[in-house]
Every structure is written in C-alpha cells, then in structure tokens.
Design a protein around this nucleic acid. Structure first.
Length: 481
RNA sequence: CGGGGUGUGGCUCAGCUUGGUAGAGCGCAUGGUUCGGGACCAUGAGGCCGGAGGUUCAAAUCCUCUCACUCCGACCA
C-alpha cells in the first residue's frame, strides 16, 4: 500500500502547482506528446478521440443551420495576406513562410495560413455575382499555424486544429444575426456537452480580431482562476469584402459589397475541459465527449465465467454506449487508478459475487460514489448515471466559477480581490483604452468580455473602476491563458 | 524575446562538489502464485550519460558553445 501511494502522487497535486499538474495529466493520460518540432504537439489517439467527439457535436449544428463544409489551401500568397492592412499587421509577427519549392526560390513567398479570411475572400470574389446566391455559408475543419513564442499543449501551440466558418450576407443585420447565432451554438455545445459554463460578450477594441468590426467571445474560468478564451465569432463588416473587392448585383441592380462573418473553435477546448473538470487523480471527462463512457473491469477474471459474463455485458452495452473492457493482467486496484486517471465517467465492476447476485457495481468518476445495480436494467441505470454525471460536472464548474467571481468598484479593491481570490472580476469600465491598459499593467488582468445587455449589471455607483468617470458597461476582467 | 529550472535505459531520479569508463525504483519480457482500491517471487533484456568542441593518460563528472523541454514574465484572433 505504501508503495502504491507514490504512483498516485505521480500526478502533481492540482492545487500545489497547476501548471505541472496540467502537463502531468496530459502526458500520463496519453492525450498528447511533444514532437520533434518545437511548439508542435502530437495528438495521440485518446486526445484525438475527444476532438472527434467535439467536432461531431459542432459539425452537426453547423449543418443544421445551413452551413456546408469546404476545404481551402494551406498556403496563402503574400499579396493576399497583405490586402487587408489591419489584418496583416495583426498576424504578420506570427506567420510562417514557405519561400522555396525544392531548390528554387519562389517568385512570391507563401504563408502557411494563420487563418483563412484572405484566401477565402479571394475565392468568394470570383464566385459571387448576384444577391440570389447569398448568403454564403461555408465552414472548414483544418489546422492553422501561428509561430508562437511560448507554447503549451492544447492552450497555445504553433499549429492547432480548428474549424473556421466564413459567411457572406446581404445586410449588416443578417451578418450580425449570423455572428450571434454561431456564438450561441458555441455556447450551447460548450455548456451542454463539454459541461463548461461560459461567460459571453463582446471583446474590446484592443482584444478584437485584426481586421474585424466586432468580436464576440465565450470565456471559461479554469480551476486556477485564469480565464480561457474558448471560441470567437467575428462580425467582419465589409472590411474584407471591400479589400478583396467582393461585389454583387443587389436587389436594386446596384453593385454592392456583402457583409462578412467568421467564427472558430479549436483544440484549445480540450485544454479547457481538462482544466475545468480535472482533479488530483487526473482527467474527468464529461460523458458527452468521453471516448470511453463505461469501462468494464472484470474482478477475479481468471475465475470460471467471469470473463464470459464481462464480454457479454460489453456486447450488450456497446449498442448504447462507448464501452471498453480491460481484461489485461493488471490488478484491479491498478486498473481502478488507471481508468480514473483517464477520466472515464463510469467504471463497471463485475466479479463472481456480482454474477451470483445478478448485479454489477457502477462507480462514478466525478464523485467516487459506488452503487450496485441489477443486471436486468443495467442499461437504464448507466444512461441515467451518465446524464447525472454530465449535469453534475456543469453544476460543479458553475459553482467553482461563481466562487471565483468577485466585484470591484475601485483599483484597490480590484487588486485585492484578484489577489485573494483569483478569477473573474466584474467591474465597470468607461470604454477608454487608457484605463484598459492601466488595469492590465497594474493587475495583469485583461478585459475578457463585455457582457450583453441581458447579462449586464451596475457595479457600485456605475463609475469606471480605473478612472472614476461614469461608465456605461460592466466588463469581466481576468488574467488569461 | 528576458529571467529561472531540467536534460543520465521507456518513466522518475541518484552519481557530478573531490574525473578512473554507469546505478536504483518503477515499467518491459518469460515462468509461476495472485485478483472487490495501484499484488508478489524468480529469471532476463535494455543506457556509454541531449548535441558539438575543448582540457586530460582518462570526462556523465571540469570548461566553452549549442539544442530541447519546462516554469515565470513580455508578446499573443
């Protein structure tokens, strides 16, 4: 027993050193590994399976709202990238370039896409002729490269997997509607399926997308009190459509520029899931995206009939759930810990005693609670339990976020709150960039978002937490990944 | 990009101060006993110490350079 404890402690306790805990968890659970190229990660099968599940949930909703998938090239000519001035300025510092084909220097350098607005707009310009074709609603699943200085698996890597939706609309109103619709879809999946409560709202001018009109975001709070931007939806107005000369004949037989949106979520979501739900024993995966929802552990599997019964159970359950059976030679105790570390929502134990009583044991990952259930209605029991775990993870995460959210009416209070209870600070903001910068300088916290009207509130006397002048809006501040 | 830390079998690390040609635990393989919260016994395979250069009769150990990872900061749709 004494020795065993060391293995449990192989994962650094979460509250002792959060960063180490994170890297321990992602490598020991074999989600990712470091690659030979600095800043690039290998996503291993278990991690990729989570991504596939997230992809599926979002992709279904994109399609249900009329979007179609496409694929644009990895490489973008320099001239295209430079067409929208603000955009290139924002991205240029982190763009990777291809300058040679074989031995030959290219006549024009090609960048590896950091995002695809430019190349997509160049094609939209060719394709769009009449209002009858609008809206354009396309999405692509791909990876992008941004040459980051500091990288961390899932949270910030030089290459990451994502989807980027790009739409064109006749009117500004339609584009705004689309922008909000996608933000809502992002939030719904994040909250219902990833069990991560989100704060949504608009980004400040400073934090918005380079070249856009308005950026909307969903932000989650991690267990260490830092915020993570989990998805953004941009209303790009006519910035790009004008820069790329995308014109069409409108209903009045006039040349017009369409309105443009883009939106994306990435593998960073997986980092969020880990940091919101994980504990000292490792991952805790929400049932809706867990690659394995139920792991069957036969107990005393050498004994007559145990393995047969376990296999039969696996076949039976596989119709409704993602099931794995661990019939390796490892001891039961080892398996318990292993699968807990992997974050599997439900462990099903079945041994001679259970078989004798026509029952099995279900142990839930989120609370550790064990119950014994009849084999006659085990499917219903599991289905109920999975949903209960899913809901409980959301409740826990929401409670955690609320406990780490405070309010401040002046800078002293702001610093105090953030120091004694790192997390979101809700505070009034006058809208001035100077105050935003000053708050960042003094506290390390940035504006994560300015909530929409229905989630707005007045903190204190309604004056800016920094300069004391009247402020119209409350904003969420936090240190962020 | 600035500051700190770390690189030794698959993993975690010891050895380095006081140079003498590499160790432990775990893991792995084989056989056996076990099996309801990280089991045990026996046997065995596996590394020339991140890389390059230098000092020396001799370098994991000393010196120089370099690379990678990691943490903090700056930067970062």
């Amino acid at each position: 027993m004494g020795k065993n404890k060391n293995k449990v402690e192989a994962i650094t306790p979460r509250d002792e050193d959060f960063a180490r805990w994170f890297t321990d968890v992602i490598s020991k659970t074999e989600l990712v590994d470091y690659s030979p190229v600095k800043g690039f990660m290998v996503i291993r099968s278990y991690g990729y399976a989570i991504w596939e599940n997230i992809q599926k949930l979002y992709d279904e909703r994109f399609k249900a709202t009329g979007h179609k998938n496409v694929y644009f090239p990895l490489l973008i000519p320099e001239s295209l990238l430079k067409k929208e001035a603000e955009h290139v300025e924002g991205f240029a510092p982190e763009v990777a370039w291809v300058t040679k084909g074989g031995d030959k220097e290219l006549t024009e350098p090609l960048c590896i896409r950091p995002t695809s607005e430019t190349i997509i707009c160049s094609m939209y310009a060719k394709w769009l002729h009449t209002y009858r074709q609008l809206p354009f609603k396309y999405n692509q699943w791909c990876s992008v490269v941004r040459w980051e200085k500091t990288t961390r698996p899932f949270l910030r890597t030089s290459e990451f997997l994502w989807q980027e939706g790009h739409t064109l609309h006749e009117t500004a109103e339609e584009a705004q509607e689309e922008t909000m619709q996608m933000l809502n879809i992002y939030r719904e999946v994040a909250e219902n399926d990833l069990a991560m409560p989100m704060v949504v709202g608009q980004k400040s001018e400073k934090e918005k997308f380079a070249g856009g009109s308005a950026t909307y975001t969903m932000e989650a709070l991690m267990h260490d009190g830092q915020a993570l931007q989990c998805g953004t939806s941009h209303n790009l107005g006519q910035h790009f459509t004008k820069a790329f000369d995308i014109t069409y004949l409108n209903r009045d037989n006039q040349q017009a520029y369409p309105y443009h949106t883009s939106w994306g979520v990435s593998t960073r979501l997986i980092g969020g899931i880990i940091m919101v739900h994980g504990d000292d024993n490792g991952l805790v995966l929400p049932p809706h995206i867990a690659p394995i929802q139920v792991v069957i552990l036969p107990i005393a599997q050498h004994k007559e009939g145990v393995l047969d019964r376990a296999y039969a159970l696996k076949d039976q359950l596989s119709n409704a759930f993602k099931v794995e059976l661990d019939d390796s030679d490892n001891s039961p105790g080892w398996k318990f810990n292993q699968w807990e570390m992997k974050g599997v929502p439900i462990r099903l134990e079945i041994g001679p005693r259970d078989i004798e009583h026509n029952q099995c044991i279900l142990a839930r990952r989120d609370t550790g609670e064990k119950i014994s259930v009849s084999l006659d209605d085990v499917e219903a029991s599991i289905a109920d339990l999975l949903e209960e775990i899913q809901k409980n993870l959301y409740r826990q995460a929401l409670a955690m976020r609320e406990a780490k959210t405070s309010k401040a009416v002046n800078m002293d209070e702001f610093k105090h709150r953030l120091k004694e209870n790192p997390g979101f600070v809700k505070a009034m903001w006058c809208g001035d960039r100077h105050c935003e910068d000053e708050i960042k300088d003094e506290t390390g916290a940035s504006i994560r978002c300015i909530p929409f009207d229905d989630e707005q509130e007045v903190i204190g006397d309604g004056v800016c937490v920094c300069c004391g002048k009247p402020a119209k809006k409350m904003a969420y501040f936090a240190r962020a990944y």
